[in-house]
Write a protein that binds this DNA or RNA. Structure first.
Length: 576
DNA sequence: GGGCCGTACTG
DNA sequence: CAGTACG
DNA sequence: GCCC
């Protein structure tokens, strides 16, 4: 019944395609036969350029050009040339929903967008005057300043947000609604909305409100039937209260996710920053407050931030590589290399994969390795092995960078560090220590396999650096080279192997759930074991015993990923 | 109205 | 101590 | 924002 109205048509979405609603649109385009491209190399003469409506002014031309260029994930000038040479059509993204609705791919005159720079000159200065009155600025600031001045007592009601935003962005929201022809899963719209709300509050630094939305989302994900009303959800599911119930009603009624569209430029900036290692909501908020929107902005304005938190240099350098997923096979190759070198240092030291790998994930975000020695409860000993191991693996070219140092290792890595500092115009702080301890119980590393051992599939990163930040990038781009991976070393005492495996197997949500459960029993659980409130050890060696002491059936690692472990414990999901 | 996981490392 | 990170 |  779905005609392939976009068959043989490629679409390039600008300024970027990594916002949630654009992702949904992309799915739709693919579903109706179209192809979404990310790179200019894939452009052809029939490619249609889609422009996010929030960058299109009343007259149908591009507004906020300098911002647009900065947000652009492709080189805008190159694109412009190609567009002019091949007379490509440039259309507002909101047309997609109309095409699908009408079942015909037909571009009308009013859909077309002009991207021709009025001045023809370089971007940069021309924006300051006109933009103060453009709708973008207004859209962005009104909701936020309001929320701020309300002083956190009563947050803006959902209805308010809807009134502010739905008018302007109805066309963007529209395709999410009429799911008659969009075959989304039963509660997918709700799940997506709650996920966005969680993300929004996490970026704001409101971890608890964010967590509430995460838990509510989990409840709905596990709900086997379609939710018909907010009241029903509140009645039958846990972690859904009055406020979320109201939101559910609005979404069910209108299909809109009010106030959640990508139009919020502030959130997008925060998101760009916080996806860099060592940048959390605090730093991101501060930078955003100073109107910075790229790492190159930050390095000019607050160079000290990069000196004190130098690991950001590597977060920046590997921003794209570290957003890529890793195959299980590649995880095993990383383990083998570490294991082989470990053997030459201390053959009695063991190392094993943990994290999402042991939970059986198809792909992993990073690689977690747990080290221990039989009968050895001295983690210092392993800390010393770590240091040697890191040095050897760096010399072999496997380790690219370390986000944790000791005095010896600062010496080992000093050339790389100096190069990175200088690359972004900073002076290497040769007098100061970039480490706090001389024996670390864990290491965060960047590692890369030689292609002779394993070649990872060439996939686009999930996150892209802005054009102006790319000069620092060490990500593998399209070279015949593997991406750099995040690899973590952890260690544990032999006597704590059970509790440690529990911790490092995760998931994070599973850990929080079972620790909260321990707390309800008046106990405390950590990677060091299960303890009484007074600190008396109950169990740390035998993982199954820990489960027993908490009165829960053993949960297989495969069931410890988000949302899977409470299958026998329906109370967690459905109220009784 | 207070709690929301518990720990390691950095400055 | 706060901030960031790890599962 | 939810739960006790």
């Amino acid at each position: 019944m779905n005609s392939k109205i976009f068959l043989n048509t490629k679409f390039l979405i600008l300024p970027n395609s990594n916002t949630t609603s654009i992702e949904i649109l992309s799915e739709l385009i693919r579903k109706f036969g179209g192809e979404i491209i990310e790179d200019l190399e894939d452009l052809d003469k029939n490619t249609v350029i889609l422009i996010n409506d929030s960058y299109i002014g009343d007259s149908g031309s591009l507004i906020q050009q300098d911002l647009f260029r900065r947000e652009c994930h492709v080189n805008f000038t190159t694109l412009e040339d190609f567009v002019h040479a091949n007379e490509l059509q440039i259309v507002r993204v909101s047309c997609v929903s109309r095409w699908i609705k009408q079942g015909a791919f037909q571009i009308l005159g009013e859909d077309l967008v002009s991207i021709i720079s009025d001045t023809g000159e370089e971007h940069g200065s021309q924006t300051s005057t006109d933009n103060s009155i453009t709708d973008i600025i207004i859209d962005e600031n009104v909701p936020d300043s309001e929320a701020e001045t309300e002083g956190n007592i009563e947050l803006e009601s959902f209805e308010d947000v809807e009134n502010r935003n739905s008018m302007q962005y109805e066309h963007i929201n529209e395709p999410l609604i009429e799911s008659s022809y969009i075959n989304l899963g039963k509660n997918d719209v709700l799940i997506k909305a709650l996920n966005l709300l969680a993300k929004k509050y996490r970026l704001k630094g409101d971890q608890f409100r964010a967590r509430s939305y995460t838990l509510a989302k989990a409840s709905i994900e596990k709900c086997p039937y379609k939710i018909e009303s907010g009241a029903q959800a509140q009645r039958e599911l846990t972690n859904i209260g009055l406020s979320i119930a109201k939101k559910i009603d609005i979404i069910l009624k209108t299909g809109i996710l009010p106030g959640l569209e990508e139009v919020n430029l502030v959130e997008r900036k925060l998101d760009y920053f916080t996806n860099c290692h060592a940048v959390g909501s605090y730093k991101a908020k501060r930078w955003e407050l100073f109107k910075l929107s790229s790492f190159s902005d930050v390095v000019t304005r607050f160079p000290d931030d990069f000196i004190t938190d130098w690991t950001m240099l590597f977060g920046w350098s590997y921003y794209e590589d570290w957003s890529k997923r890793i195959s299980r096979e590649e995880c095993e190759c990383h383990l083998k290399i570490v294991k082989d070198t470990l053997k030459t240092i201390d053959p009695s030291c063991h190392v094993e994969l943990q994290g999402s790998y042991v939970r059986g994930s198809e792909t992993c975000g990073d690689i977690d390795l747990l080290f221990y020695k039989q009968y050895c409860d001295d983690t210092k000993e392993i800390g010393i092995i770590f240091e040697k191991l890191v040095r050897l693996l760096f010399r072999k070219g496997f380790i690219q960078c370390s986000l944790m140092l000791t005095s010896k290792l600062q010496e080992t890595f000093k050339d790389i560090l100096r190069e990175r500092f200088q690359k972004c115009g900073l002076k290497y702080p040769s007098g100061s220590s970039l480490f706090a301890s001389d024996i670390n119980k864990k290491y965060y590393l960047g590692t890369k396999l030689p292609t002779s051992v394993y070649k990872a599939r060439d996939e686009p990163p999930l996150l892209k650096l802005k054009e102006c930040d790319k000069y620092m990038s060490l990500s593998s781009s399209r070279k015949n080279e593997n991406p750099c991976r995040r690899l973590d070393f952890f260690c544990c005492k032999w006597s704590e192997i059970g509790a440690a495996r529990m911790q490092w197997t995760g998931s994070g949500e599973f850990n929080r759930w079972i620790r909260l459960l321990a707390d309800k029993h008046g106990l405390k659980l950590s990677q060091h074991g299960l303890f009484t409130r007074e600190g008396e050890l109950l169990e740390s060696y035998d993982e199954r015993k820990i489960f027993q002491l908490l009165h829960v059936d053993y949960v297989k690692p495969e069931l410890r990923s988000e949302g899977l472990w409470q299958q026998d414990e329906t109370k967690g999901m459905i109220k009784k």
